[in-house]
Computed example of a mutant assay.
Amino acid sequence: MTDSRFPNPLQSAIAEVYQGVFSHPFESFKEATLRRLRALLPFDSAVWGSGLHSTNEMLSVSVVDLAAPSLMAYAAEWQEQDFVRNAAVSEPGRAFRPEDLMRREAYERTDIYRQYSKPVGIEHSLGIVDRNPTTDIGELIFLFRADPGWPFGDAERDLVEALAPHLIDAWGQSQIAHHYRAAADGSASGFHGYDSYAVADAAGVLHASGQDFTRALRAIAPGWLGPRLPPQLEPLQRGDLGTLNLGDDEFTVWFLGDRRLFAVAPRRGTFGLSPAEARVARLYAGGARQRDIARQLGVSVSTVRNQLASVYLKLDVHSKLELLRAVNRMQG
């Protein structure tokens, strides 16, 4: 039996990943995070790619002890034939090894093993792909070992599945934190949580998006799916405006070279409600059912129920009629 006062190795690793958001420069965050992961899950080399899941377009790639020529050869000649990668892409959130898909003897007879993996010193691989189905932002993480007698075990596969969501979440936070500091001349003053921000490129393609920002986009553009920002934000994306009020929210943009940092906050007059709470209050007061609100915003019914409970408490209302009156005051 473990003592809860002392974190287990997985908890410690997760804590270190999030600490890296502040301690590692944005440009080296992925490589540094993978190197720290080695203490918990040893490997010889690794790759972490970020991109668009639906189109397979890579936006950035970081490697650990993997020669650039071998990575370029893989991308040019072997990526489409990589059945392990293809399996991971088809089942986001699940980690795969070659032996999960075929016997080792059969794998050693494949062209990708004989002509690529073995010559570059990759005997065993373990990888996972994950994606946000709303924004289409995808992440690919693969670990490699060179020793034929040291395969990745089942427990290590489970560990990657447990760690991957935290690695990916921290990477999004790192991007947002870096660009916020750049917009604020190195300061974190006024920062009100990663969930309210997003980072996009000059073409309007999202690279990172917090949960509240994503939900705000779904509120102003029901059914919206990434990776491109919805047309409602084009005046901000083009630089025609710096701030734009849409629905219950105020959107703001900062231009940072080829990147844009977007933020969302409640419009004035929302009586202390968060952006998500203000949206739920307006929809519910307008007659929408909880399950319909959940479907529109891409959240669970229990999330909507909890947000409504918070709304009733903050607005000091006790019925739907009182809520409607409060919402009318906010909008009035």
Rank of each mutant, 00 (worst) to 15 (best):
G49K: 05
L66H: 01
R295F: 03
R260T: 02
G247K: 05
K30T: 03
R181T: 13
G269T: 01
P235R: 06
P98W: 10
H192L: 14
R325D: 09
F144S: 01
E161Q: 15
V264W: 12
V301I: 11
D249I: 05
Q79R: 14
G186H: 08
S319H: 04
A170Y: 06
N306D: 12
S125H: 02
E277M: 14
D44M: 11
K30A: 15
L244E: 04
D158T: 08
S189P: 00
N8T: 10
L321W: 07
A221F: 02
F271W: 09
W150V: 08
T2E: 10
A155V: 11
L71N: 02
H179A: 06
V311Y: 06
R85L: 15
N328T: 10
V301N: 08
P227H: 07
L40P: 08
E250P: 01
L37A: 03
N56P: 00
M330K: 05
V61R: 07
P266K: 09
T214F: 05
R228D: 06
V301R: 12
S90Y: 02
G138L: 11
H207R: 09
L37C: 09
F96D: 05
L313N: 04
L41F: 12
L246Q: 02
V205L: 14
I112F: 14
D147C: 10
A32E: 13
I220C: 09
T270F: 13
N306E: 12
A68H: 10
R215L: 15
A155D: 10
W78V: 07
G210M: 09
S196Y: 03
H192D: 12
A87H: 08
A265N: 02
E250F: 02
I176K: 04
R238I: 07
T243S: 13
L37W: 06
Y18N: 02
W254Y: 12
N8E: 10
D292W: 00
S28Q: 08
S187N: 09
W78F: 15
W171G: 14
Q173R: 13
A88K: 03
Y116S: 05
V129W: 07
G51H: 08
A182E: 13
A13V: 08
V327T: 04
K30I: 05
E16N: 09
I168K: 02
A39R: 09
E80H: 13
Q79G: 06
G49H: 03
P151T: 07
P25G: 13
Q173L: 04
A208Y: 13
P133E: 12
V61G: 03
E91S: 12
A155Q: 04
L126K: 04
D158L: 15
P230F: 14
